[in-house]
Design a protein around this nucleic acid. Structure first.
Lengths: 145, 145
DNA sequence: TAATTTTACTTGCATATTGCAAGTGCAAAA
DNA sequence: TTTTGCACTTGCAATATGCAAGTAAAATTA
């Protein structure tokens, strides 16, 4: 997702296109998934996912996500070597995208495992489900620094 | 999105990961956007979008999307050189993902143009909005052949 | 009917992104 | 004070994407 004629780094002004320029790569949404649904916060934890992201790719994605204000990092008080990564509000706002993707795949491939299943709650009132998880994520990720 | 150790072509069994293996590339969701929100149906029309997808990439994406049952093609009755591309129900079911991505970018970058705006309807009852657009898409895309 | 144009691709090669393995630097633990 | 663990970096190989030109076949035009 780099250069183009206008030098803006975006392919067009279409919102979907711009969203994909930001998080439409192979890894970004998986990193967000881990921050959302697993307790993972550190570099090493994020690297330990099933998908085995290469260490250099993880590093560049974290930088890009931070540049785009989707995540932020804080020094770990318990270990000054490491940072802990958190979602910003902008990052938390991607929750519906992640859940909809998850639900879509689960519907058409029952073998897929859903991190935060709860198909029942989704079917009953998915907006309520978004709100509840969003509330939890805000507690876990915002106002830390 | 190709090989891995198991040879299944997927990175893990996680639903999000699998969804991204299918439509998480730079172009697939843009093609779906055009099928959903513009009247574009033919190869040439799909190629004429602002983002200027390369012709070889468009060709391979259409094949992949068809292999994954997200779109299907029908010969154009009016011009036997061309096919017209339509969404399957599985493809239509990606509507929430596309709308959520669009809404997310619009929220954080007001300069982004939303294909099917209607922020009001989204804020009032987005599930209803999904349903209405889904109904329209079913009429336009399903039961053609 | 023959020549031209339109349409949907394919092909070859350049560039960009991702993947892998090994290495580095620093702080914590032993 | 050595060793280990963690968070990256670096170099290079493998894929994926981007660009420009080419091809085949049906439609249009002359």
């Amino acid at each position: 997702m780099k250069k183009n004629i206008t030098g803006t780094g975006r392919r067009s002004h279409c919102a979907i296109s711009m969203a994909l320029d930001t998080v439409g790569d192979k890894w970004s949404l998986l990193i967000l998934r881990d921050l959302m649904f697993t307790g993972k916060r550190s570099y090493g934890e994020l690297q330990s996912s099933d998908e085995k992201i290469a260490t250099n790719i993880l590093a560049t994605r974290l930088v890009t996500l931070e540049e785009n204000n989707i995540i932020y990092k804080q020094p770990d008080a318990a270990d000054s070597r490491r940072y802990l990564y958190y979602l910003t509000e902008k990052g938390i706002d991607l929750l519906p995208v992640v859940i909809e993707l998850m639900h879509w795949m689960s519907k058409y491939n029952p073998g897929a495992s859903a991190c935060t299943a709860n198909t029942t709650a989704y079917k009953k009132d998915r907006v309520l489900l978004y709100k509840e998880i969003t509330k939890q994520l805000r507690k876990l990720h915002l106002q830390q620094g």
